[in-house]
Design a protein around this nucleic acid. Structure first.
Lengths: 184, 184
DNA sequence: CTATACATGTAACTAGTTACATGATTTA
DNA sequence: TAAATCATGTAACTAGTTACATGTATAG
């Protein structure tokens, strides 16, 4: 589960309550991910059982007690291992974004490799969709009806895949290279 | 549930077995959606109970019997109603793509309105992310470390939102307008 | 002989949503 | 006086994944 890892990234930046984590998700991490407070509380509960996080309960007057969560050493280790391990071959953008966000300097070589890998998956799909496009719809201006609509959906696929490739090219250009003398 | 609607779209184009629907998902509809055969069989079962689809069982020698599903009048009505009704305000691309794919000529005015609505949601988010970008990272070339990585993830959000807007602009330009005399 | 296509499903699980429930403080 | 913010959760449900189970025909 990647929500677990996203929470670890957030907690590795700074500790906070479930409520605060929900709000952070609505803002920064939520640029590409939404998680409800219910889901976050549930996940934090399981993570506590698994020793990835701990919390300190703080009494407050007028408000319910709050639980301030922080990442444990086990959590930090689990996160780093996850970042260093290639993900699934579905090319999940959310998962990759979490890894980019959470990678420590020592994780960067593995991260770059993973970005390359995911970029290749999306480039391949973009190519595949473009081949469908030219094969099945050689004259897009002449289309109408159901065929036009099918074409437009395919166009969405092409643009989405190519957009991901463009983003990852930006990422690779900006991320520090391990060996600046030998170009990639 | 939108898988239900995606299956109705597929069956409204032509009838088929659960297996065939799975394969069609892997190809055309699967450009932006994946569904496993297990999930499709389960969903077809529920849809049969709800009267959206029916099947005819066909014996085959050497192969297990197959169930050829087709859409019912209720299913067709349900699909059309769903297409004509605005969706959630999360701006789900998958859902919109299903509507574009499934809309009959008489659904087009409502579809255009929905595309406009979803385009506006994504344009708003693109703007919001760009405002974060210029406020929090005025000099992107000077960034490094965690801050650079946060910026790159935000860039992914900007590109993704803008990419969706660009796609929907293409859709609006290509889809026939109800009144060609008054420009939008 | 191995993989792929055809054809169906169950069981157990993980992920995520929606509705409900409580209650104080601050801002408009 | 109404809404938003802070703060926690449970219960019921829908959606989707992974592992298991069976069996033939055909192409390489």
């Amino acid at each position: 589960m990647a929500l677990e890892h996203a929470l670890l990234v957030s907690l590795s930046e700074r500790s906070g309550t479930g409520y605060q984590l929900t709000r952070r998700f609505d803002r920064s991490i939520g640029h590409w991910w939404r998680a409800s407070h219910q889901q976050i509380y549930k996940t934090l509960g399981r993570m506590t059982e698994n020793g990835l996080v701990t919390y300190v309960e703080q009494a407050q007057d007028g408000k319910p007690d709050k639980k301030v969560y922080s990442i444990t050493d086990t959590g930090r280790k689990t996160l780093s291992e996850w970042i260093r391990t290639p993900g699934t071959d579905t090319g999940d953008r959310r998962e990759l974004a979490t890894k980019i966000r959470g990678a420590a300097p020592s994780d960067l070589p593995d991260l770059r490799a993973e970005v390359h890998r995911i970029r290749a998956l999306h480039a391949e799909r973009a190519e595949l969709f473009r081949s469908f496009e030219s094969r099945d719809y050689p004259h897009p201006d002449a289309l109408s009806g159901a065929e036009l609509q099918q074409y437009l959906v395919l166009r969405g696929g092409v643009l989405s895949e190519q957009g991901t490739v463009d983003w990852l090219d930006e990422v690779l250009a900006a991320l520090p290279s391990p060996s600046p003398t030998s170009a990639d």
